[in-house]
Design a protein around this nucleic acid. Structure first.
Lengths: 186, 186
DNA sequence: GACAAGAGAGAACGATCGTTCTCAGCCGAT
DNA sequence: ATCGGCTGAGAACGATCGTTCTCTCTTGTC
């Protein structure tokens, strides 16, 4: 097992555990047990827990946005792409183990005490909003629509997490459809 | 200082500290220092931290929804009342020390490990949604609008918290206006 | 085969925190 | 005035956790 392997196994374990239980309630021993990487090696690769947390959020940001984009881009029509965002959310909310947005949860848990976590949440949400802006622009809709769609998506994530059901995605999709229609006729 | 006084001072301190720093990063010693109530008395009134947390969320639920309702009900027109919800959010987001929704943050921090906190979040959000349903019904709008407005409001809370600016409230208000217009013409 | 170097397993350390205990002082009752 | 019980201040306890250390075993080299 070389360093790259160990890194991957650590990040896999960190993602599973931090996402499922929250960051503060997962100890480094649990990361070691789940990854099979000894503490000494863990601390050689990530000199402190905060750096493991940052790496976890960074890697998840790339994969989360990548999976979203892959799904959305399988739809050719620009307006359908916008609605596809909410279809993808519904599929995500329906996955076993779904427990909300890692950045929203992380912000709630550590936003006040860890500037790094707060900054990661801001970056991730800004990137998501930018992505929506691109979809909106490609569909020839006014820029203000992007922020409104973004709020619907964030609201759906929070609501699906707290209620434990995916139905918020369909409601957000319906609302998005109304906003699209309203802006098209404007 | 009788028990009722001590209770109030403890809950005041708990609310200030838990909201500002998160629940897990506030120790019982900090509650004692901020409230002036000795640990012995604290534990006589709240036998464990979790019960103080529950009481904090419960009291805040009453006051949060009360303040919202008081503002909304100062508007006579049923449709204006719906939009007033978002005006109130904007004012709330602009308060110094605003750090998002206590239940969303609490869910992110403890939703996975404390069933009590998860249940409080569900109850609070359900009550908020019910309140919006009442406003929507009073305005003669279709029931599905309430869920959509709810998602906008939740999204605004999260976004305002993470970005640290209140502008999400105005965006949500604009989106709500579009949804009202769309449903009125339907 | 001997040995240096590194790695793994897990103990140990130091800090924090929820909770309980000690002890000195105070207050009301007799 | 005395005594019993309650209260407050803070020490103490026990558990947890991030981080480091120890010790043993392996492994590659001469």
């Amino acid at each position: 097992m070389d360093d790259a392997d160990a890194r991957t196994r650590l990040l896999d374990a960190a993602e599973d555990l931090f996402y499922a239980r929250g960051i503060q309630s997962v100890g480094m021993d649990a990361i070691r047990d789940a990854s099979g990487v000894p503490l000494k090696r863990l601390y050689a690769l990530f000199p402190a827990k905060e750096q493991l947390v940052e790496a976890y959020l960074e890697r998840r940001d790339v994969s989360w946005r990548g999976r979203l984009a892959a799904y959305v881009e399988s739809h050719p029509d620009p307006q359908q792409r916008i609605l596809a965002v909410f279809d993808w959310l519904q599929a995500w909310f329906s996955e076993p183990g779904f427990r909300g947005c890692a950045w929203i949860n992380g912000y709630g848990e550590l936003g006040a005490t860890s500037a790094a976590v707060a900054a990661q949440a801001r970056r991730h949400k800004e990137a998501f909003r930018q992505y929506l802006s691109g979809l909106v622009a490609a569909a020839g809709m006014p820029a203000s629509l992007a922020s409104e769609l973004h709020l619907l998506a964030e609201g759906a994530m929070v609501t699906a997490a707290i209620f434990g059901t995916p139905e918020a995605a369909a409601q957000a999709r319906a609302a998005a459809g109304h906003l699209l229609a309203a802006d098209r006729s404007a």
